[in-house]
Nucleic acid binder design. Structure first.
Lengths: 228, 228
DNA sequence: ATTGCTCTGTGACTTTAGTTACTGACTTTC
DNA sequence: GAAAGTCAGTAACTAAAGTCACAGAGCAAT
């Protein structure tokens, strides 16, 4: 397990968690002492069903991908964790002996702050802002997941792919997206060949142009139409 | 909307929520005054994406089915709400303006206790037990949903159906299950014909025997083998 | 330039699931 | 007991997705 631990750095991770910065009670300050920053290099497994861990993890830096993996190696992304969020899987572990089945992978270098369970409980009890933040993340994930179930069950792959491309092009306002077909497949829970086929169709329709390792939008508009 | 409101009855709904019974602060007692019990007859819609509602709903009695519905009418069950649980959709509404896409249907007559938002926040702040209960429900739903995404994406329908039957037979130790093919289809997000076909296969294999409106297990064991 | 690796393209085929279009059996209601 | 409604069975077909088995293109290192 490639988990490098940084004993010193309590550094400035508080910045990412505005809710925590304002708490002044003694318990929370001592929690800061107890907190440790764990650093994971890009592309390492942060957590998987068997991982023994205590406490709650706060994501201070980087981005993680949370996904389900099938026996045959296929994957589907459940959601992505962003800086300032708690790891809801560590919460699940804390509040019920829940055996989740997902894996967490660091997509970039990732800094996780680990708060011991008791200190976490204390913070939740004493900081309204912290509580709100936690509930907000939890409920957000919840509605996202419910929606995802609907999509996976009822929506054809071409539509789901078009939506995904729409999103990906949306964020950066880039015209060129750096991603492989395999990565798209792992996002949607299908296989590379299927994605290649669908992308080819989109290319023939004039929405995109395919290159090695990248996809170029030609008609943002046509892609959006597809998504419906 | 068939929502009958019961103004009087604060009755004994507290029984279902042990966490709440022990709170003695004034704010919570006044919340009890503010709380109202809503009664929904069996088979009525409790909540759907557009439903305007405030506060948090606690399920005191009965059982609800939460599901996604596709444009063509097909449905898939996300989870079932049981007495003693909060409605996580009302939480989602409270903590982010989240636009969930699920519907909630009363499967039996249902008693919902509505707690105004501020009183709910107060209870979460002041009762550790209540907090634990809420987090437990939330995280439980979360890991269930993650698992569901995996199942829907990667597991063939025959396996999913066998699992479902296994569960349903498991609960009551009944040898006979009272359910229609359509209901099974709505549970798994597929169509009636497909379920009929698969059940027929199971029957030929000697696992079950089919009757009108019921299914009888012949070999619990064979069914379990299928599930793997 | 040769070798090897990663990524994409594609045809052919299989499997799974969804749809259509009925039939008939069983129930409930009048 | 006739009519209407619900539930199940089933064949034939379509469509969507997954799998297999390659070929070849682009890129990087030696």
């Amino acid at each position: 397990m490639s988990t490098s631990i940084d004993h010193l750095a309590i550094e400035d991770w508080l910045h990412t968690f505005p809710a925590l910065a304002n708490i002044n009670d003694a318990a929370w300050l001592s929690a800061q002492q107890a907190a440790r920053v764990y650093i994971f290099p890009a592309n390492t497994v942060v957590m998987r069903p068997g991982t023994p861990s205590q406490g709650v993890f706060l994501l201070a830096k980087g981005s993680v991908r949370v996904f389900e993996r099938a026996a045959n190696g296929r994957e589907i992304v459940l959601y992505r964790g962003q800086p300032g969020e708690i790891c809801i899987l560590s919460l699940a572990k804390l509040f019920n002996q829940a055996t989740y089945s997902a894996e967490v992978l660091a997509e970039t270098e990732v800094h996780y702050v680990n708060i011991p369970s008791c200190d976490f409980r204390n913070a939740v009890a004493n900081s309204a802002a912290f509580r709100e933040a936690i509930f907000s993340t939890l409920t957000h994930r919840l509605s996202d997941l419910m929606h995802l179930v609907g999509q996976v069950t009822f929506q054809d792959l071409d539509i789901r792919l078009a939506c995904l491309l729409g999103q990906l092009f949306g964020v950066g306002t880039n015209r060129v997206l750096s991603i492989t077909h395999q990565e798209l497949a792992d996002e949607l829970g299908t296989s590379r060949e299927v994605i290649s086929r669908l992308l080819k169709e989109f290319e023939h329709m004039g929405c995109i142009r395919l290159h090695r390792g990248t996809i170029e939008v030609l008609s943002q508009h046509d892609l959006a139409c597809l998504s419906k």
